[in-house]
Design a binder for these strands. Structure first.
Lengths: 141, 141
DNA sequence: CTAAGCCTTACAGCAACAGGAAGGTCAAGG
DNA sequence: CCTTGACCTTCCTGTTGCTGTAAGGCTTAG
């Protein structure tokens, strides 16, 4: 099956499939006599798996690990569980961070007169020489 | 004042200050005879403003607009309000998206046996040929 | 013969910087 | 005077996960 067919079935753009091959996320498929890539059912399964994993927010390296586990019948579910738990925490941290930002933004929006005047609490706040808040907990990226 | 001093006072890395100059976010400062950049108090104020805006999650283009408003005494606070309201919505949308992902991940974690067995609900779920969910609402980036 | 619709490779670009190389400058110490 | 170290300069590369574009080959229909 050609790449466009694989793209249709997997839900990934052909470009992305080639990209995944270029970074060794998937193994290069067989080539037809004319040089075209030929995909098998197994390949499609991997691509679908990757699409789903990406939708769940896993990055490429995490997908690499997941895919290894997926393909490995000797896996222990605990390993998978660990990976996904880590991801969950990661997402939680991200949400907390965004929620903080959200609250700050809401305060700004509430404080601004929202009229034709030049006076603006938002500008004042952003211009105020706020301390360079050293983040209070470990610096995770 | 040299760039390292400006960096210290503004809380931005010198690299970032040069970068902001290179993308015309800030105007190039005066140069000393030896070619070193010389920053004035006004420049520092702008840099602090930018640092704060970035911390609030505004991207560079949004910072550009904010900075214009900041420097323009003829601004109307309503314009600022609009910008920040938009950003708030943007952040809200992002949070909702992440919250969805979070719930899905939590379900996965809950469903996995988390033991030495190869059988794994997470793997099964990711491998299942889930429909390629066409996003139900406008595709904003 | 030509046009379309596939396919191939390779390179550029996005955001927002960070890291490092290669070299000039400046102040202090011996 | 020379060296050392801490600045400064520019330029290039790498990051993440692709997407867009160019330039060309294959295949099939009209």
């Amino acid at each position: 099956m050609n790449i466009s067919e694989a793209a249709k079935l997997s839900g990934l753009p052909a470009k992305t499939i080639r990209y995944y091959e270029s970074i060794d996320l998937i193994s290069p498929p067989r080539r037809a006599a004319n040089g075209y890539r030929c995909y098998e059912a197994d390949d499609i399964a991997s691509l679908c798996f990757l699409r789903q994993a990406r939708q769940f927010g896993f990055n490429i390296d995490q997908c690499r690990l997941l895919l290894d586990l997926y393909k490995n019948p000797q896996r222990r579910s605990a390993e998978v569980h660990q990976l996904v738990s880590d991801k969950l925490e990661e997402v939680d941290a991200h949400i907390r961070e965004l929620a903080d930002t959200r609250e700050l933004l809401a305060k700004l929006v509430g404080a601004c007169a929202n009229d034709d005047d030049a006076d603006c609490a938002i500008i004042d706040r952003l211009a105020s020489p706020q301390e360079q808040s050293q983040e209070r907990e470990g610096s995770q990226q």
